[in-house]
Amino acid sequence: MIQMLNLGHSGSTPSQGSESMPDQAASPSGERMSRERMRELRNLALEMQSLLGARWEVLDCLALGGMATILQLRHRIHKGLFVAKALRPELADRPEILRSFHAEARNASLVGGHPNAVPVFDVLDAGGLPVLLMPFIEGEDLDAFIQRHGPLSRIQTLQFATQISSLLCHAESYGISHGDLSPGNIRLDQFGRYRVLDFGLSRMQNNDDPYQPFSAGTPLYTSPEQLRGEAPDIRTDLYELGLVIVEVMTGKPLMQADSLKAIRQRHLDGISALPAAIEADAPLARLLRRMLARERSERLRGAAELSRALEQLGFQPQELMRPDAASTRRGRISTR
C-alpha cells in the first residue's frame, strides 16, 4: 500500500530547523499521521538529500509504501522535476527484494518509450540503496480525478481504454504484465494522456527468475488467479483493466464490499451482473464480461484482441484532450 504524503515543504528543501508541522496530518485516504511519524519522514528526506549529493534537491516525500519511499526531486542545474523511488533501508539486505526492485527498473525501462508509460532514466546508488529515477508527471491520479469530476462519458472511457490497451500491447511484446492496474496507479497528465505508474509487481513471462513477484495487487482490482497464488499474465491485466473501465464509467468500484474478506470472495465467485449503466450498452457489456471472466482461459487472449474489440465498438482515436478540458482549457496534442 502506498500512502500519499505532503510534508509541507512548499517547494523548498527540507530543513532541520523547520518545526512548523501540525501535531497530526491527514493523508488523502483520511488516515491521521502522528507528529512523530511526520518528523521521521522529514528526517528520511534529509538523509536522502545527503545521499543523492549536490546534483539533486529533495523537495518532498510524496508517498511511503511497504517497499519504497517516493521523493520529488529538482535538478539543481536545469531545474527539471523528477521522482525518485528509493528502496526502504530495512529491506536493502534482502536479495529477493533487491532482485525484484531491479526487475521493476528493467520492465519499466523496456516499456518506457511508449507514450502511456513513464520511463526510468537511471538506477542510482544512494549509500547502498537502489533508487529509480523517473520524470515527474504533472497531472492527477485517475481515482482522484473521478472523485472530483464524476464518471467519464462513453467516448472518454473508450479513449482511456484504447490508450491503456495500446500500452499493454507494447508490454506484451516484451512478455511483461503489470500485475497491479488500478485507478491509483494511472495518472491523467496535463495533455490528456493516461500514464501507467508503478511496475513494482510487474512480471516478465517465460523467465526462470524465482524471485519474480507473485503477490496480489490492490484488493479491489486483484484477479482471482492472484488470490489463488498463481502467477499473473497479460490476461490478469485485462481483468484489472476491465474493473477500472467499469469504475470510470460509473464512479464506483465494482467489487466494493464491507471487508477485505468479502472483496476477495467477490473476485473468486466471479461477476454475476454489471451495473445498469453498463448493461444498457450491450456491445460494451459483452466485452467487459469477457475481460472479467473468473477463469482467465475464458478472457480475451491478449491486449491486441482488446484493441481490435475496442475498434469494433466504433471508437476512432481522436485529438487528445483532458476530460475536463471544457472547463480548464488545458493543453492538447494530436494522435494523428
Rank of each mutant, 00 (worst) to 15 (best):
Q159R: 14
Q159P: 00
Q159L: 02
Q159Y: 00
Q159W: 02
Q159V: 00
F160K: 01
F160N: 00
F160C: 02
F160Y: 09
A161Q: 04
A161M: 07
T162Y: 15
Q163Y: 01
Q163R: 05
Q163D: 03
Q163G: 06
I164L: 12
I164N: 00
I164G: 01
S165K: 03
S165E: 08
S165V: 10
S165H: 08
S166K: 07
S166E: 13
S166L: 03
S166G: 15
S166W: 02
L167N: 10
L167W: 09
L167P: 11
L168F: 15
L168Y: 10
L168I: 12
L168G: 07
C169Y: 00
H170T: 08
H170R: 11
A171P: 13
A171M: 14
A171I: 13
E172C: 03
E172L: 00
E172V: 01
E172R: 02
E172W: 01
S173Y: 05
S173A: 14
Y174H: 15
Y174C: 01
Y174A: 13
Y174P: 00
Y174R: 08
Y174Q: 04
G175P: 11
G175Q: 09
G175T: 10
G175K: 09
I176Y: 05
I176D: 01
I176N: 02
I176G: 03
I176M: 05
S177K: 00
S177D: 04
H178G: 04
H178F: 09
H178V: 05
H178D: 06
H178S: 04
G179L: 05
G179Q: 06
G179C: 07
G179F: 10
G179R: 04
G179T: 06
D180Y: 07
D180N: 13
D180W: 03
D180M: 10
D180A: 08
L181K: 09
L181D: 03
L181Y: 04
S182I: 04
S182K: 15
S182G: 02
S182P: 02
P183M: 05
P183A: 10
P183F: 12
G184A: 11
G184H: 08
G184I: 06
G184C: 06
N185I: 09
N185K: 02
N185A: 06
I186M: 14
I186A: 08
I186F: 08
I186P: 02
I186D: 04
R187Y: 00
R187P: 01
R187F: 01
R187Q: 04
R187C: 07
R187S: 01
L188C: 08
L188N: 09
L188I: 06
D189C: 12
D189S: 12
D189N: 15
D189M: 10
Q190M: 14
Q190D: 12
Q190T: 15
Q190E: 14
Q190W: 13
F191C: 03
F191Q: 09
F191K: 08
G192N: 11
G192R: 13
G192L: 13
G192P: 14
G192Y: 12
G192V: 13
G192K: 12
G192D: 13
R193K: 09
R193A: 09
R193M: 12
R193E: 11
Y194D: 04
Y194L: 11
Y194P: 03
Y194F: 15
Y194H: 14
Y194E: 02
Y194S: 11
R195H: 13
R195Y: 05
R195D: 02
R195Q: 15
V196C: 04
V196P: 05
V196S: 02
V196M: 04
